[in-house]
Design a protein around this nucleic acid. Structure first.
Lengths: 158, 158
DNA sequence: TTGATTCTGTTGTATGTGCAAACAAATTTT
DNA sequence: AAAATTTGTTTGCACATACAACAGAATCAA
């Protein structure tokens, strides 16, 4: 349809007026996708009291005991202050512990944290399965790759 | 590289162990993208004290005076309660006003709100230009379309 | 050695968002 | 007509996230 094409054209130019171009704006679409998929993630990880970013952080700490907040910040694409808050939460659940060494902080998993990891991985499976089914398995990998590439490009460009 | 391919394979299966598969997980990538692009949006819209969702909402109200929260909720893919909060904020800035009619609520732009619209559109342009340049103009439209399609699929599948 | 700068991590504060519950109005059922 | 249900909107609360400011440690300069 021609009107569709016009909307698409506007998506880059951005001179959308009354044409409801939200779906053609990446700022809008990316946030909508993030909310929708986070809902799935939080539902699965929420079964054992975590949200998706806690789960990621825990996995990373288990994989690399003694990792620093700044490393986590880079890996997870999250602000240092956010990392502090997430670690605090995981600490209050006795899943990780912090050790201060000079100005550095080392984060280690507790035995409970390590024990939880397989369960986290199962939830991860379920999340992946669910969104793959809904989106279509064929498209997911490509989409993920492109989305990540875009996120990286935006992150570096600032 | 073979290791890369293995990671990709894991992205669907989700059985990632210590292979740092964050970039291969849509839950992770989508959120990273959303944060990065929202940072751009909020920077531009923040010049006049709005965040990106306020800007969207304002545009929609200007385009359709008397629109209801539930309609906005559907259009913007946001929860009714979130709409209420956004409208409250815009009301406190005297950009929209609410009228109660039975159980329904009608939202109208104020003259200030209408006057702001061109400025909002300019900011919109700048946002689009900025992320298009960083991501690559060619890829943006396709990416946006796919991201939106995925968001829709997830939204309906619940 | 001492002073300045830089790096790392943590807080105070603010904000967008959602869930669950409440509430009010409208509609349907009996 | 009265009761029950459904619909539209708003609140109470919680939470992830970020920015700005700060504090402590390390490094560098004089």
């Amino acid at each position: 349809m021609e009107t569709e094409l016009i909307k698409e054209a506007n998506c880059v130019a951005g001179t959308v007026k009354n044409t409801k171009p939200y779906s053609a704006c990446l700022l809008f679409s990316a946030n909508a996708l993030a909310r929708a998929i986070t809902a799935i993630g939080d539902e699965e990880f929420g079964r054992f009291g975590l949200c998706y970013s806690h789960a990621y952080l825990l996995c990373e700490v288990v994989a690399q005991p003694g990792i620093s907040p700044s490393q986590l910040s880079e890996t997870l694409y999250l602000t240092p202050s956010t990392i502090t808050r997430l670690v605090e939460k995981l600490e209050s659940k006795r899943l990780v512990r912090r050790e201060s060494e000079g100005k550095k902080t080392l984060i280690y998993p507790t035995s409970e944290g390590e024990a939880l990891q397989p369960i986290v991985n199962e939830a991860w499976d379920r999340v992946g399965t669910r969104y793959s089914q809904l989106i279509g398995e064929k498209d997911v990998c490509q989409l993920t790759q492109q989305v990540f590439k875009a996120a990286q490009a935006l992150g570096e460009g600032e």
